[in-house]
């Protein structure tokens, strides 16, 4: 059964069951709501398959940090305004704080933990170290995930273009000039 086949009555009946806290075992497809209101999702993170039963309120950010113990992705504003929580979903950079993990079924995710190959850092990670592209480091995982995407998008042709393409990642320490340098080093 897919969730699309749910009748309206069924939808409400399940809600009623959930609200009295009963669990009715039922076999459902990933992404479909279960009788207890939880949703089952399966996706890959950094190449590894994961399967979670989640409350649909949980954001991808919280699922990564609290359920999968991938704490490299940071919670800054939690309102889509700072970029610290940037991850890649199917190769595109997005904000994990405004993404419900319930919508991630079948997706391919990459977080900051997935960039290095063993002990060999990703060229963008290395560039941030070489260019001193951070101070406190809190925004850095998000900056690096964005920078990797910027290079893939081909939006790093000039300093001005890099600044605009990186504008979704705020750095309160103000390491911006060094971040631009790091993107340029990684570009070459």
């Amino acid at each position: 059964m897919t969730s699309g086949d749910l009748s309206r009555r069924r939808f409400f009946a399940q809600a009623a069951v959930a609200s009295v806290g009963m669990t009715v075992p039922m076999s459902v497809e990933p992404g479909a709501p279960e009788a207890d209101g939880l949703v089952e999702v399966a996706f890959t993170v950094n190449g590894k398959g994961e399967r979670l039963r989640v409350d649909p309120r949980i954001t991808l950010l919280d699922a990564l940090r609290e359920r999968l113990e991938l704490t490299g992705t940071k919670k800054g504003c939690d309102r889509g305004q700072c970029g610290a929580c940037t991850v890649h979903v199917d190769g595109r950079r997005v904000l994990s704080c405004l993404t419900l993990v319930a919508t991630m079924d079948g997706k391919r995710l990459t977080t900051i933990e997935g960039l290095a190959k063993g002990d060999r850092l990703h060229p963008v990670q290395q560039a941030f170290i070489d260019c001193d592209g951070f101070q406190c480091g809190f925004c850095t995982p998000g900056q690096i995930m964005s920078a990797v995407a910027v290079l893939r998008e081909g939006h790093a042709k000039s300093d001005e273009e890099i600044r605009e393409a990186m504008s979704g990642n705020i750095c309160r320490c103000g390491a911006y000039p060094n971040i631009v340098e790091a993107v340029k080093q990684a570009r070459s």
Binding site: S3, G4, R8
Partner: peptide
């Protein structure tokens, strides 16, 4: 956040029904 039910229908008719 308040609790809600979640559904991810595949068809437009299914979405409109919900």
């Amino acid at each position: 956040m308040r609790a809600f039910d979640f559904a991810a229908p595949r068809g437009i008719a299914g979405a409109l029904r919900l």
